[in-house]
């Protein structure tokens, strides 16, 4: 319940920052809110990150792989990256300090960072 109650998904705020579409996970989360929350596995993190990128206009339609580099493969520049990092913070209810954010250059590195955060949900 805690995981669900603190999930940004229930607030639907992604639609405000990344306006293209509201991910299907929103519906799943609302439907499941009275059952046990799934553990935040790396697979679930990856799925949510891929959805996040799919809803961002610059990366919509691109293949999002764990190995995808933000700049080389996804074509994001520094301003895009700050936006994406902020959106990841919203998505998983975490704070990513600047010096940590600078080290996140691939989807896999983002997944690993989130997985290392005890309070990510």
């Amino acid at each position: 319940m805690l995981r669900l109650s603190c999930s940004r998904l229930l607030k639907g705020s992604r639609a405000s920052a990344f306006p293209l579409r509201v991910p299907s996970l929103v519906a799943q989360a609302q439907w499941r809110q009275y059952s046990a929350a799934p553990a935040l596995t790396k697979d679930i993190i990856q799925e949510r990150i891929v959805e996040l990128f799919e809803s961002y206009d610059k990366t919509a339609g691109k293949e999002i792989l764990p190995s995808s580099s933000f700049t080389r493969d996804l074509g994001l520049d520094s301003l895009d990256t700050v936006e994406v990092v902020m959106e990841i913070e919203n998505e998983f209810s975490i704070i990513i300090p600047d010096h940590e954010a600078d080290e996140i250059k691939t989807v896999q590195q983002a997944i690993d960072f989130i997985a290392s955060q005890d309070d990510a949900c």
Binding site: S13, A15, S16, A17, P19, V82, E83, M86, D98
Partner: peptide, 20 residues
């Protein structure tokens, strides 16, 4: 201008401004 909230109270803008 992104998002449903007006610029003057947008949490997204506040967060971005505080970061930069």
């Amino acid at each position: 201008k992104r998002g449903p909230e007006p610029f003057s109270i947008s949490k997204h803008v506040t967060k971005l401004a505080e970061r930069v």
